[in-house]
């Protein structure tokens, strides 16, 4: 790349690498959270680039709710191996013992226990003082106001009124024992940037992003994939094979598929350009109430 005018993707890439290196240098015990989605796949790729030729100097961690799509878990293990990351998988064992699930307990309680609590447990257990997350500011209103280095109290809470001013590319990385920082190196990327970068850099993503025939049931206007026999079918519900794909990946009962025939990256991008609904609408948890993300963040969710 010649040092003339840089494309916006290169500018974004450089900014992210700068952030990732800053964390690796200044924190005692950082970890990269891996959600297996496209955004965190991009983040992993950037981390690998940042330290080349050395491997990234921190582990990956996946908070497994046990309700992820099977293909995601397989992809997770392959990816960690391919990039030479040390992978930590954490599940809230108490939640698991009580069989907390999205059907009997509702999506928000379930998310609280199996995601938010689980994440807090893991951060405390390993004593991580910094955790990378793949959130973007264009995803949701409260994220638009969150810092790249987002300070968390010892209870992992976020106080939107007490954010540290963040100037230039000089980041304040100081925390007291027990406190931590969530770092969002791809804050300034948009969904389109992510897809363009995936194409440009040939980054592998979970096959669920590509259209294929998959068994689904329709609920409240959303298509829910029947990934395994744990999905309780309602009376009269019969899974149907439909050509679908996912715009965003989470826990399978909480993430809706869309009907689509986009089976290649350019087709996905094309579909995205035409799309008239924003990405998070495929995630059921954001529908609960306005301000729900802000609330979750205050409680320690990413």
């Amino acid at each position: 790349m010649s040092p003339d005018r840089k494309s916006h993707l290169k500018r974004l890439e450089d900014e992210s690498i700068h952030i990732i290196r800053e964390v690796a240098s200044e924190f005692r015990n950082p970890v990269m959270l891996y959600s297996i989605g496209k955004d965190s796949s991009v983040m992993l790729h950037l981390a690998a680039k940042a330290f080349y030729p050395a491997p990234p100097p921190f582990p990956l961690m996946h908070v497994d709710t046990t309700w992820k799509f099977r293909e995601m878990i397989q992809f997770r293990d392959e990816t960690a191996k391919r990039l030479g990351f040390n992978l930590i998988v954490h599940t809230n064992q108490e939640g698991l013992a009580q069989n907390i699930n999205p059907f009997d307990h509702g999506s928000s309680y379930y998310t609280n226990v199996m995601k938010t609590d689980a994440l807090k447990q893991a951060l405390t257990k390993y004593g991580f003082d910094a955790a990378f997350g793949g959130a973007r500011r264009d995803e949701e209103k409260s994220r638009a106001k969150e810092r790249i280095f987002s300070f968390r109290t010892a209870n992992h809470g976020w106080d939107p009124k007490k954010q540290r001013p963040e100037l230039w590319n000089i980041y304040n990385t100081r925390v007291a024992p027990g406190e931590s920082i969530r770092v969002f190196p791809i804050s300034n990327w948009t969904e389109l940037d992510i897809w363009q970068y995936i194409m440009l850099e040939d980054i592998p993503i979970v096959p669920l992003y590509y259209a294929a025939k998959r068994p689904v049931v329709e609920r409240g206007g959303q298509l829910i994939m029947v990934d395994d026999e744990r999905l309780p079918l309602e009376p009269g519900e019969v899974p149907q094979e439909k050509l679908v794909r996912f715009r965003t990946l989470g826990c399978y009962p909480l993430t809706a598929a869309i009907e689509s025939d986009a089976a290649t990256l350019p087709e996905i991008v094309r579909e995205m350009l035409i799309a008239r609904t924003s990405e998070r609408s495929g995630r059921l948890i954001d529908h609960d109430e306005a301000g729900s993300m802000e609330k979750k963040k205050r409680e320690g969710y990413f």
Partner: peptide
């Protein structure tokens, strides 16, 4: 690279 400039993250 043969050259790098302001803004580039390099080694």
């Amino acid at each position: 690279l043969d050259a790098a400039g302001a803004g580039d993250a390099v080694t």
